[in-house]
Design a protein around this nucleic acid. Sequence first.
DNA 1: GCCGTTTTCGGCCCGACTGTTTTCAGTCG
Length: 581
Amino acid sequence: MPTLADILYEFSVWHEIGGSPFKPRAYALAAESVTALGSDVKDTWRTGGVKALVALPGIGRSIAEKIDEYFRTGHIKEYDMMKKRFPVDITGLTRIEGLGPKHLAELYRRLGITDLAMLKRGLTRHEIRSLPGWGVKSEERLAKNLALMERSSGRHLLSEILPMADDIVAILSKIPGVRRCVYAGSLRRRQETVGDIDLIATTDTPARVMDAFVALPLVEAVHEKGKTRSSVRLRNGIDADLRVVPDEVFGATLQYFTGDKRHNVLLRERALSKRLTLNEYGLFRLAKKKMGERLACATEEDIYARLDMETPPPEIRGGGDEIEAAWTKTLPHLLPYGSVKGDLQVQTDWTDGSASIGDMVTAAKAAGLSYLAVTDHTKALAFIHGLDDVQVKKQGRAIDALNRKLRGFRVLKGTECDILRDGGLDLKDSTLASLDWVGVSVHSLFNLPRKAQTARVVKAIANPNVDCLFHPTCRIIGKREGLDLDMDEVIAAAKKHRVALEIDAYPDRSDLRDIHVRAAVQAGVKLAIDTDAHTPDHFRFIPFGEAIARRGWATTADVVNTKSAKDLLAYLDKKRKRRVS
DNA sequence: GCCGTTTTCGGCCCGACTGTTTTCAGTCG
């Protein structure tokens, strides 16, 4: 059975083929909404049923009932019927650039093409060029884009793409005639994964800049090349789009291409309601359905201000309630980059880290931090020689000795204590009570059923010696789904026991993710932003953790390690009085 | 099908690029 998002997307394509004017958009937006929520759609449904689903953006009565049917029965009758009448691998085929609903319908009706293999056969036999509206060029283009799709590397972790994007921006900035150059899109919004690189350049000589762009050595193939927009495949398998505009409309273009799509649709609808129209060249008055005077274009702030809104930071532009908050001028003051003062999850060569405590301190200092917590694994992780109670005490004495030598930097004694099968902990309470910072986490039995897994985690954080739940869901992006946890229950337990939830910034973890951060913040649960550093080089992940916090609407006050070491220890002292020793 | 600082009815974002078209349809972001 395809995923829920795929099904909604296929409905959208299906209605597009059928010529329905507005249903395609409705289903497409619902599909995006479901994708953005991930597994939490099912949680929402489980706790609130159809009624709770309707409250989600882009989901109304009709779609909510289909989702309900999907979760209850594993099928959607209307979808199955649609599939019978149009047995086409819509999701698979539309991954090819330039192949949309109308073409799919044509290929199926005239040639019976339903999947990639049949499409390839049609291409080699040159059956496609003779279809009405098609020609040799469009057939060749389809073949080229199919090959590019097969060699595409899919979505990438933000941390992989960001340095690459910085390099490309630097290269483009040197093209003669370029005044400003930045990246926008999902990169600027700091989404956890990025599909392509959206670039904006301003210039008075667009043609020259475009010629230079598509001729760059790092460009492997050109999808499109126009006067103001070009799209290319880079040699590393990633697509990049460049938009070129006059410098004076930079703000409008930046707003437009930062997105996301739903945010922009809502914004433009809001503009329309004020008899204005918004595009990548500015915000204009609308007179007799024609564009009139330009009201704003230089900066994003100008545009939002003319719509009587605050400017939402890019990280929270998702087409949800940031629009409402911007309108009512109640946007939160998100935690600024550079706010984290210490890293509270660091592994050393006492277990599976690569460097000594001293070397990690040196690297943390160089990264601008003023403290770190040494949190080596515990003995349940035998294969990496996790520490037992005696070794933890011994490490503590080593840290005391190191602290006596350090100036302007503090090393906290900590642990990443394993959560055992029954929710018990891998170190004695007396050992835990002797530490400055106790993190706990799951490293085994990832597939326990939801009820048992939730009970296990909740029991662990109910231990009064625990300060933080590390990488709470244990997902690994692209590899491991993560624990089946009732996050509402975990968040409620964290609140009750005053345990912080970690934002593990290690790129393929990114755990908590944005929506759970948001739920934690709304519940008044504190967060810790850590890198999970295993080498000195890993402290560079901190901004990625800060980005997740920002996407979850967190402020400085929500994150415990924005405090100085002294304030953090004072804060933890209040908890320590309740500890069992 | 969704949605509401104009609305429970009647609206629904906007422009660039391509190819096959002599004025536009399809696709994309």
